[in-house]
Nucleic acid binder design. Structure first.
Lengths: 342, 342
DNA sequence: GCAAATAACGTTAGCGCTAACGTTCTTGCC
DNA sequence: GGCAAGAACGTTAGCGCTAACGTTATTTGC
């Protein structure tokens, strides 16, 4: 498999095609001024020699690497995956390529990742969340490239933001429960300091309870993020054991909500009649589940699409960063909290 | 945000620290021979100046980019995500970094992606599946780097393989259904030519039926891959409408199996008594679902881990590729086909 | 006590590509 | 016919780093 003969370079192609290396370089670009016959000859020669363009050398010379670095908390999360998909789909054809890494919901791991990514000289950087270590923030601020924070509305953004208010999402769910006539409300997940967005949702939930003058102590820790279905089930047992008269519970994500829901089925707890269950994130499982699960749609894929638009706008002309409108989370009313239909 | 002053280079650090650039270069490596005090001085100077190492230039010079290119069919699939996680986790600390791209289950998109990746001069390449376009195969063969095909057992591998037999998985499920006393079996998914692994599972399923002398025509198309829960539900309706007396059905993945199962609940079809339902992939939803879903565990994360081991072995010494043992899919017996317990 | 080994640096020459200018030749226009 | 404008190339000089040698001082073995 390993070929001892070293692979051909642009100079080899140039020689074989009878032109200068610069002409070969131009032939591989879009708009460069090369006559059509010459371009064809060059591309054919390149293919014949098995020449493969070297983006690394090109990047070093032109100072344009074509990389967009992206950090997400977990690779195994359909929500973030949707955002990445929206990003990639809208970057296709621009020559920009994603450099993806995950932080495991750890700010220090994020810092490590950001530092590693910066050595690749990306042209833009996309982060999930608006909380970072001081050093990480410092690195990003002086990187001299567009920085886009997503999935959050940081009070003091580094550069641009494409996100929504996680706290509002929590508050929104309290309102929904109260309108439904529930007053003893619980929350599952978001206990550690790792998942700051989950914490924000819980904070919004607690704020909503306090504003409504309700008990705001029924909070159950559900394990390290990402909270799994299994941990959601366990947390529901804990919740019911401690506060058996709880009427409604919001879970930090649809996955834990589904776990909690199935535990209700196993324990013989009627949903939503005895206990209403809601999630977050509009995962597909919440729609198909029986009963279907009330959740909050945060337009994950649109976050990616708008982020792509931001990046392209910034790279074309170094214009002032237009600040996109915050996205508004939308409540999807389903059976698990008394919604009708599917 | 954009800083006009151009960022410091290794030469700047060298000057500020009173050493030669080469010494700075060595100070940033592990085992290079630099005295401890000098190294400390250099690293401190670098930090003070805000110097960021340039991996691109380093790669150009040393011909080691530190990239491992990986293609997966879909980013939004917990199975492949597990494999990637296993890979990343076992590559951590080696200085190797993943270059991830997805093919959308399309061989031509894979070819495009592979070609794009090769311009980044990766040190190894990991592919999902063993079917490629001729040109793609040609590119890979002469790339001169370790190529690892996963999630499959191709008859004519390009280089190394870390995978399992999808056909065996299908056959295994037929055997399980037959042992349970079912003889009218259906299969949902895997209709198009895109998902070749899904097709292999269906082929194994059909072969198993033929070997057992059973009807092998109850095959339902379920839409383009990746087959969603929703499509699984729709496919189950189609199946029941066409062959109402079907006793058991295998779905191409747990997601479609869950969709099918929930449709059974909605239609009042008793599972497993009137219809047994099984999936593939050991997604978490299959374990938590009520009833829980029989599935096949293919050790997705281990595929990633063993792939990482392969790569590291090949990069350390260019030894002959040791061929790893094929992984053996494992049947997880659950309630949806008559298994007891959870 | 002296050749040989070792540690800790410095020097030189690229890696493969492109930015920024040159150069040549054609074309159009009054 | 003369000249400006453009098309289609070629030349030169790096981009920021490291491999592969030098060089110098210090240590080691017998």
């Amino acid at each position: 498999m390993t070929r001892p003969a070293k692979p051909p370079t642009m100079a080899d192609v140039a020689k074989a095609a009878g032109v200068s290396p610069m002409t070969v370089s131009r032939a591989f670009k879009r708009d460069a001024s090369v006559s059509e016959p010459t371009r064809r000859t060059i591309l054919e020669t390149a293919e014949r020699l098995g020449y493969i363009f070297d983006s690394m050398a090109a990047g070093l010379s032109s100072r344009r690497t074509g990389f967009v670095a992206v950090t997400i908390p977990s690779i195994n999360n359909a929500n973030f995956a949707d955002t990445v998909r929206g990003l990639v789909e809208n970057l296709r054809g621009t020559g920009l390529q994603i450099l993806l890494g995950y932080t495991d919901y750890d700010m220090h791991e994020e810092e490590r990742l950001v530092e590693q990514f910066l050595t690749r000289r990306p042209e833009a950087m996309v982060l999930t969340g608006g909380k970072h270590t001081p050093r990480c923030r410092h690195l990003l601020e002086k990187a001299g490239i567009p920085i886009i924070e997503t999935w959050d509305l940081p009070a003091d953004p580094i550069d641009q933001v494409v996100g929504f208010s996680n706290a509002d999402a929590g508050r929104m769910m309290v309102r929904h429960f109260v309108e439904r006539g529930c007053s003893r409300l619980g929350f599952i997940g978001g206990d550690t300091t790792r998942d700051t967005r989950g914490l924000d949702r819980r904070r919004g939930f607690v704020d909503g309870l306090n504003e409504a003058g309700l008990d705001a102590t029924r909070l159950v820790a559900a394990g390290l993020p990402p909270v799994s279905m299994r941990e959601g089930a366990q947390a529901l047992r804990d919740l019911i054991e401690r506060w058996p008269d709880t009427e409604a519970v919001m879970c930090v994500s649809d996955l834990s909500a589904f776990g909690a829901l199935t535990e209700c089925l196993r324990m013989g707890i009627a949903v939503p009649d005895r206990l209403a269950v809601a999630g977050f994130g509009a995962y597909e499982v919440s729609e198909l589940s029986v009963p279907s699960i009330t959740t909050i749609d945060v337009h994950a894929e649109r976050i990616g699409a708008e982020t792509a638009a931001c990046i392209l706008g910034r790279l074309d002309d170094a214009a002032a960063p237009g600040i996109p409108e915050p996205l508004v989370p939308r409540l999807l009313l389903r059976q698990s909290t008394g919604g009708v239909g599917n």
